[in-house]
């Protein structure tokens, strides 16, 4: 069963095209080889890990619209006590199939989400969609390997995740500890979205829209056509300070563009389960513009990156949680980007 699991198996969807075959092949092959090597005791443990998933206590989920459920992660850094459950995840139930959107930051977090789905429906999970490559959104993927699900993401996501996978796993293992990290591994997507595509869940379909570089270089927005709910991934942070791992200019442009025809209701990557577009986008744009404007002014007068890190957008500190953990790094990244303007 291990060499025929979903990570190596065939695509279930005809609507999604498998792009970049050359890029996808080696990584998929690596995943398969990895599984084959696991054929001994580790594979056995993984099999039981899969069985235990059904007995894992279900994550809380709330129905924010008809058939659209959100599990709200904690606003925190990954730690043993939250087993990496630090980002929002969700699932959408159709008459034929269920799509899961993001999987949390560990196998355990993914398994709890999978149990939450089982509480709500008997329909099979056929799609696991990752909104981008960050560990708190993808490290739960392995919990869904027992489902015959397709793993779906932006076409640049496998490249970004592969480049960082070793570090993500090492850091997660250190910060979560052995117990909370157990079973966690990288599962790369096997269906890639070039610009846009849709998947049919029966009675409703999800529109997948690949974005230009913004929060990361592989942000994907998932919109349910039946209710108009859009899962924004980390294009929207609420409460939790944004973290920049793509392009500050691109992020501002992307949010402004989305603002021309926003969704009815959106699900942020971090923060409340659901928000209106104005309440989601206004603080984001205020923060990103404050950083960009202050950094540009410092660059213009020949200031240094250290000076920018200490002063730029300092007024935002009281507006966000985890500000100290991410803000200075955001400023560093913004500086390195904007000095090339």
């Amino acid at each position: 069963m291990f060499d025929d699991g979903p990570a190596c198996g065939k695509s279930n969807s005809t609507l999604l095209q498998r792009k970049h075959l050359n890029a996808a092949h080696p990584t998929r092959r690596t995943a398969c080889l990895g599984l084959l090597f696991m054929g001994g005791s580790a594979g056995f443990a993984r099999y039981f890990g899969g069985l235990q998933a059904r007995e894992t206590e279900a994550a809380n989920s709330i129905e924010i619209a008809d058939g659209v459920f959100v599990h709200q992660g904690q606003i925190a850094d990954q730690a043993p006590e939250n087993h990496g459950d630090i980002s929002n995840a969700g699932f959408v139930i159709g008459t034929d199939a269920v799509a899961v959107i993001d999987t949390g930051g560990s196998y355990l977090a993914g398994a709890a989400l999978r149990a939450a789905v089982a509480e709500r429906t008997k329909n099979p999970i056929k799609y696991v969609i990752n909104t981008h490559m960050h560990p708190d959104h993808v490290l739960g993927n392995a919990a869904f390997k027992a489902d015959a699900a397709a793993f779906v993401a932006h076409h640049k996501m496998p490249r970004a995740l592969t480049a960082r996978s070793e570090r993500y796993l090492r850091v997660a293992s250190e910060m979560l500890g052995a117990e909370a990290f157990a079973g966690t591994q990288i599962v790369l997507p096997d269906q890639l979205v070039e610009t846009s595509s849709s998947i049919d869940l029966g009675g409703r379909s999800l529109q997948l829209s690949a974005q230009n570089t913004a929060h990361t270089d592989n942000d994907l927005i998932v919109t349910d056509d039946k209710t108009g709910v859009a899962f924004m991934g980390d294009l929207i942070f609420s409460g939790h300070v944004p973290s920049l791992d793509g392009s500050i200019k691109g992020w501002i442009e992307t949010l402004e563009k989305i603002g021309n025809s926003p969704a009815q209701k959106i699900v942020p990557g971090h923060g409340p389960a659901a928000l209106s577009w104005p309440e989601a986008s206004m603080p984001m744009l205020r923060y990103l513009n404050a950083v960009a404007n202050d950094v540009r002014a410092i660059i213009k007068r020949g200031g240094t990156i250290s000076e920018a890190v200490d002063t730029a957008a300092g007024g935002e500190a009281s507006q966000w949680q985890l500000f100290e953990d991410f803000h200075k790094r955001n400023v560093s990244a913004a500086f390195a980007e904007l000095e090339w303007e």
């Binding site: 570089t213 270089d217 791992d245």
Partner: peptide
């Protein structure tokens, strides 16, 4: 030393040699 080159990987390759 092992952090991936640039956050936007395509931009990293497209601009080699540009100077300011």
């Amino acid at each position: 030393c092992s952090a991936p080159a640039l956050k936007d990987m395509d931009a990293a390759l497209a601009n080699i040699g540009k100077m300011k």
